[in-house]
Structures are given as C-alpha cells and as structure tokens.
C-alpha cells in the first residue's frame, strides 16, 4: 500500500519564553526530537503519550499548523515541511483535523450550518447545502441542528459537528486530537463508534492522538508511543498490548485503572 505520510527525522523546537534572558534570544525547547514513521493510505494509527510527550505538537505539525524546524514531512509525495501558507491551501482540503475541545474549536458566533459550510465555500465546492445536509446525516445529527449555535449542543453533539466539518471536505486524511477526552463515557463510545464507521465507509486515513490506551486499542491497527519527543514503540496495536516492549509502554498500561475491583494495583 502506498504511504500517505512519510515522516523523516522530524524535529520541532519552540522558543522557551519563560527562560528568556533580558537581552538576547530565548533558548530553544526541543519538543520533537527526530521522529521517523510512515502512515499508509487507509491506515488508522494511534499516537499515545503523556503530557509533554509532544503528541499534540506532532499532530499539529502533520497538518502544518506548526512548521517543523528540521526533517521532512511528505504528504502524498509532496514535501510540505516548509511549504508557505498559500501553497499549502489547496492541500488543506485533503488534510483535516478534529480538535480536542469542541467548544473552543467551533466559533461561538456561527451557526452549525455555517461552520460546516464555510470550509466548503473556501475550497469552491458546489451544491453546498446538499453537502452540509449529507455531512450532518453522516454524523447522525438532525438537519435542524444546522440552525443552532454550538453552545446549544451537548459535548458529544459538538464533537459530531467537528467531525461533520472535517468529513464534508472529503479529505484523504483526518487528524483526531484527543477528541473524546472531554466527553462523558456514553458520548465517548458513540463518537468512537461513529468515527470507526466513517473511516470504513469513506476510506479515510486517520491519525488518532490520545492519552488513553484503551481508546486506542478499540480503534487503531497500529500504535505509536511517544515519550518526551521520541518514539519509544511503533507496532501493531494487538502486539503492543500483548507484549509491550518499551518500559514506558508497560508503565502506561499498568497505570490504567480497569473497572474491576479484582485488578491488583501494584
């Protein structure tokens, strides 16, 4: 299978303003320290790690919300590592993102219909009302929701709007950044089921960032474990759960509280 993403020695550092001396430049803080991996077309890859692991930074670099400071990101053969914004724009339709906090990622002053339609308009789609209707349909929201504002929806419904906005553009790739971590367990399950179905129906390639291995196990065929900006493990999910190699992966697994009083917690 062809690779949609090829990442080679990806590095990203940000200025550490807290340690900036009075005069002179702030020291660089290395967030990603040379990551290499590929995402084949149609794959569902989980990216897991604790806070400070760099998983969200990696995600934002993949969709080029952040510009890497070294290495290369190739998207479907095109080197997008340092591509300037105007050159990036036509590619943006093909790489979409669903955000962690659906409240802050939906403009509170726009109605749901506008939120979904706006990106379509930007990319010159035709028959926009039909596409909006179909997107709402896909995520299981009634058409009447197009006229609502984000604050009128529940957390799970907002996240569905985020998904609808992403899939309406018929992208090749979707990055999902901690999209269920703010939701109640019941909505969590619904959103995951929905995403699972859409990936299969629409043939999407998905990178799913989470701190929660149990959620990753449910959805992803392959899992990349990040620890302090480095990949410590990158294997098929089933193998990783059966026999974790990296010490950090084992620690992560051990720390998950199973809903079972019999589980001993050493």
């Amino acid at each position: 299978m062809a690779d949609l993403y090829q990442i080679e020695d990806l590095r990203l550092s940000l200025a550490d303003m807290t340690a900036k001396p009075l005069f002179g430049a702030a020291p660089r803080l290395e967030i990603l320290k040379g990551l290499s991996f590929t995402i084949p077309k149609g794959a569902v890859v989980g990216i897991v790690g604790g806070s400070g692991s760099g998983k969200s930074t990696l995600g934002r670099a993949l969709v080029r919300l952040l510009e890497p400071s070294g290495g290369a990101i190739r998207f479907d053969g095109t080197d997008i590592t340092h591509l300037p914004e105007p050159a990036l724009r036509p590619l943006r339709r093909r790489m979409q993102m669903i955000f962690q906090d659906p409240m802050s990622s939906l403009n509170p002053r726009h109605r749901v219909g506008t939120i979904i339609a706006e990106p379509l308009r930007l990319h010159g789609f035709d028959a926009i009302p039909d596409r909006v209707a179909r997107a709402l349909d896909h995520v299981g929201l009634p058409q009447s929701f197009a006229a609502r504002y984000p604050h009128e929806l529940s957390g799970g419904q907002r996240q569905r709007v985020g998904i609808a906005r992403a899939i309406a553009l018929e992208p090749d790739f979707i990055l999902a950044d901690e999209i269920v971590s703010g939701l109640d367990v019941s909505s969590q399950a619904q959103v995951l089921n929905l995403l699972e179905r859409l990936v299969a129906e629409l043939g999407l390639t998905l990178a799913f960032i989470s701190h929660d291995l149990s959620v990753i196990r449910r959805l992803c065929q392959r899992t990349i474990v990040l620890y302090r900006g480095e990949i410590v493990e990158d294997r098929p999910t089933a193998d990783l759960f059966a026999d974790p190699q990296a010490a950090y992966t084992r620690e992560l697994l051990d720390a998950i509280p199973l809903p079972d009083p019999a589980q001993a917690w050493a």
Partner: peptide
C-alpha cells in the same frame, strides 16, 4: 482558540 486553528485547517487566509 482552536476555532482559529480550525479555520486555518479549512484553508482560510
């Protein structure tokens, strides 16, 4: 806010 990031992802200048 993320809605600004999402506007960029959508391709808005």
């Amino acid at each position: 806010m993320d809605y600004v990031a999402s506007a960029r992802v959508a391709g808005r200048g």
